[in-house]
């Protein structure tokens, strides 16, 4: 195992993040604040409570998920797409590193960034709403798993993408709708029966539900189901990455 290589890749990704730390930080803080103003204040004044939790607090887990999933995906996909685009990938291909080490470096970096942003959004939320976290450890565990699994997916997208349009297409076309329709801003029980059924096919729904359970001890589905869902998603991404590794898909012509 070439740990030195993992280390330099990881550090380079993190250095890039900290170089633009203010930008990286400002964007999620501002957009979260806007969500609180629009959803929390405007809609919250009409809904008041969802399952015993104030609406402002209720949307916090969904808001964090929305940002974290987007950040993890785009960080990881840009991270690996850029060397492909600029040609510097030749160095990874000619170095004594396995695909696993490259994945660890890039995905580790992207997941760490997304995790930091998740915590920052959480901290911002405390400024707007009263919030107590019922299971802090479970909350952190869900957060880490989400960061890692979506970074894995981002990595795959980055390898697959052949231009910048494709790179931003997936987050825009898939992740944002899935998060919005996955109950980020409402409880599935508030929907008509047909839509409830459809929602159960949305993988993000299980993540948000589990994450919300860690905050408020109540969820749309049992927390074990949520855990199983995120484990399955991670496993699918890992299997896909293993397949890329075996075949050299899109990397070694």
């Amino acid at each position: 195992m070439n740990f030195l290589a993992v280390g330099v890749i990881y550090r380079r990704e993190m250095a890039r993040f900290f170089r633009t730390f203010l930008q990286s930080l400002l964007a999620p803080v501002i957009s979260t604040s806007l969500y609180f103003v629009v959803f929390g204040a405007a809609i919250g004044s009409r809904i008041e409570e969802v399952e015993g939790v104030s609406y402002g607090a209720f949307i916090v887990p969904g808001l964090i998920m929305l940002s974290v999933m987007g950040q993890a995906t785009s960080n990881a996909s840009f991270g690996i797409y850029f060397p492909k685009f600029s040609g510097t990938i030749y160095e990874f291909l000619s170095a004594p590193v396995s695909f696993l080490e490259v994945v660890l470096g890039f995905v580790g970096g992207a997941a760490t960034k997304a995790f930091i942003i998740g915590l920052i959004i959480l901290a911002t939320s405390f400024l707007f709403v009263d919030l107590t976290i019922a299971h802090p450890l479970a909350m952190l565990a869900f957060l880490v798993l989400t960061c890692v699994s979506f970074s894995l997916m981002g990595f795959i997208i980055g390898i697959w993408a052949e231009n910048f349009e494709q790179l931003s297409l997936i987050p825009l076309l898939i992740i944002t709708p899935l998060v919005f329709l996955g109950g980020a801003f409402y409880s599935a029980s508030m929907l008509p029966p047909l839509w409830q059924t459809i929602t159960h096919f949305n993988p993000v729904f299980y993540l948000i539900s589990g994450f919300r359970w860690a905050f408020f001890e109540q969820a749309d589905v049992p927390v074990a189901v949520s855990l199983a869902a995120i484990a399955a998603f991670t496993a699918i991404c890992l299997a896909f990455i293993w397949w890329i590794f075996r075949t050299g898909w899109k990397i070694r012509a």
Binding site: L4, A5, V8, R12, S86, T88
Partner: peptide, 22 residues
């Protein structure tokens, strides 16, 4: 093919690490 915004020093240190050299 080089990282446009990295310094020379960072790039050579990176390459050395990538090749598993302390």
């Amino acid at each position: 093919n080089l990282e446009l915004f990295e310094t020379v020093w960072n790039q050579v240190r990176f390459s050395r690490g990538l090749f598993d050299k302390a």
